[in-house]
Design a protein around this nucleic acid. Sequence first.
DNA 1: CAACTGTGATAATGCGTATTACTGTCGACT
DNA 2: AGTCGACAGTAATACGCATTATCACAGTTG
Lengths: 365, 365
Amino acid sequence: MSRAVNGRVTQRQIAELAGVSQATVSLVLNGRTDEGIRIPEETRARVLRVIEETKYVADPSARRLAGADNRILGVFTYEPAFPTRSLDFYTPLLAGIEAGAEKLGSDLLLFTSTPVVDGRRQLFHEQNRLLLADGVLLLGVEMDSHELERLVDGGYRVVAVGRRETPGIPYVGIDYSSATRSLVNRALDLGHERVFYHRVGSDGESVRDRLEGVRMGTADRAVAIESRIGTLATVADDWAAIRAFAPTLLIVESPDVASALYEAAERDGVDVPGELSIVVLGSSPRLTPDDVDFTRLNPPRAELGERAVHLLSRILDPDETPSDLEMRSLLECSIIDGATLAAPRIAAPRIAAPRSASPSNEGTK
Amino acid sequence: MSRAVNGRVTQRQIAELAGVSQATVSLVLNGRTDEGIRIPEETRARVLRVIEETKYVADPSARRLAGADNRILGVFTYEPAFPTRSLDFYTPLLAGIEAGAEKLGSDLLLFTSTPVVDGRRQLFHEQNRLLLADGVLLLGVEMDSHELERLVDGGYRVVAVGRRETPGIPYVGIDYSSATRSLVNRALDLGHERVFYHRVGSDGESVRDRLEGVRMGTADRAVAIESRIGTLATVADDWAAIRAFAPTLLIVESPDVASALYEAAERDGVDVPGELSIVVLGSSPRLTPDDVDFTRLNPPRAELGERAVHLLSRILDPDETPSDLEMRSLLECSIIDGATLAAPRIAAPRIAAPRSASPSNEGTK
DNA sequence: CAACTGTGATAATGCGTATTACTGTCGACT
DNA sequence: AGTCGACAGTAATACGCATTATCACAGTTG
């Protein structure tokens, strides 16, 4: 592509063919009709015809170097996007982003160039291509706050997908806190009083929001609650801990873990939701017919992606000035009724109210 | 990103700080040590230190404009990549491509900028960004031969994913023809003599290859074969046609259609593979536990993507000259035994052989 | 001592575009 | 005749980098 393509047409060649100067060609191309710029229809038409004939296409590098924009949106994912583990998470997002980009007529530049360090990519490295993009979308559960600040300080146009606490970072997120609280309330309203909360060990904002949602949902309730941090790998132990506590309601943060726990319950002959209700604070997009129909949150990920692109495009548009509200917004997250939530069988023997009434604080402050 | 970023460091600034010229900075940056270029270790170190301190990052546009390469691989998909319909097809490919790009330290530029016309994108449009990429990967079932030629003529570096007949186009494809023939042979060896072939109405090379595989597989055999072109939408009619022909073996090109036909068979009480064997000439990546375990082809899509990136990188490398063989290669496609192929009931009227004499193979080999 | 040989760098140039300040021409009006 | 304004378009420059031809100098040789 670099030098091999000597056959490429430039504005200068167009200019010669049309009998004008390169500057005129540029003016025509960009449709400039401002005050002080006058090009008669005749000339304009002549230039346009030559452009047509030669199939001229502007060199994006030259455009950018000269200060014009390029309709390229960067996409940075802190975790590799496609490898199957993260696939459920990223695919719907990318679908939305692609749709949004297509509407805008923008291309997407995926920054896949950093070899992963410690399971995460790093945005700034000695040869990053950030500058090629007009703006950048940031995806990932956790983001390095320093890098985010550096982006803002560097004057880069950025939108984070997911709420960010770092000041100055525009984002489009999901209101996990409210949705989680609603879901928890709904469950507790059914009469559950022994609750186990299976958490994920991450400090990402979205994770914290769900945690807060659980806290708020259980705050004024007389419930015994125990929580535990685990992953897919620790499911066996987790399940043992759950059985030991003998809750009637199980709140699970991760859909994957929920599936595994459900299987464990099935194996042990624990009836769901008869003996144990399960609610899940997320949703896996590959809904297969035989998957458990969990009562769960249904984050609108594709919409999230599209909205993020839209926000970024508004930030990039010099004629627009997005309001503060727009710059940091949350999408509502719906709840799917599902089949794993029911009233507890034993309707609360009020006599001996057990244990503590507030969640045991583990992990994140 | 464009002008707002005045704080960006340039080579000239580095040069001033280090007390050298911009040219020297460039030479150091690019590690040039050719004959005729001499920079003593001391100076080199000094420049490098300043580069470190200032966190200098080269402007990719300027680099490209000056003729250097950028480690950016373009990806063009003729059909939108993420929308769910094509998702099964593209996702594994993109996973492989991402993995390959990461290994190379390259970024991916997804050309999503064209609004889709007639369900397909068009590569050349008035503002394409092809030039930003060092080379381009082309994905899609069908590609416009004219556009391909124009790419080659334009001197663009290109690799197609999937076999292409257009001369001069390097590709990495899948050997559907051989694999299909093997699969058909395996089926016919079991004794099937009435065969129905459900095809897809496309003129893409891969589709033709499968067609040829079926032709070759059935060529010297005494079989009655009927074929029909259909889609998911026509499945009801297709199934009626199949019943009318009453085959013992059904060859289905599309995994989606195969699922639908299987359901139809189930509904009508047709035993698979007892009364009707089904083989499928493709595979859907979202294998869910309750999906039918078809006897089928298993195209190595992720590997395909990675290999395509690899080939492209070799084409781009000025020190390498890929052989013709390498430029147009086919990957072997494995066959998954599955549970939908068995000998026809009526074929072997051995005296008292009930049902199938051999257990139908279940699960992936 | 003039001519040569390395050495260590730099000035100058080009890549293709966008932008701005400026030039030249023509007709109308004082 | 001279001035003015409108018009049509251009020359010049900048953007940040890579590259090449060139230069100044020190030491070495014939």
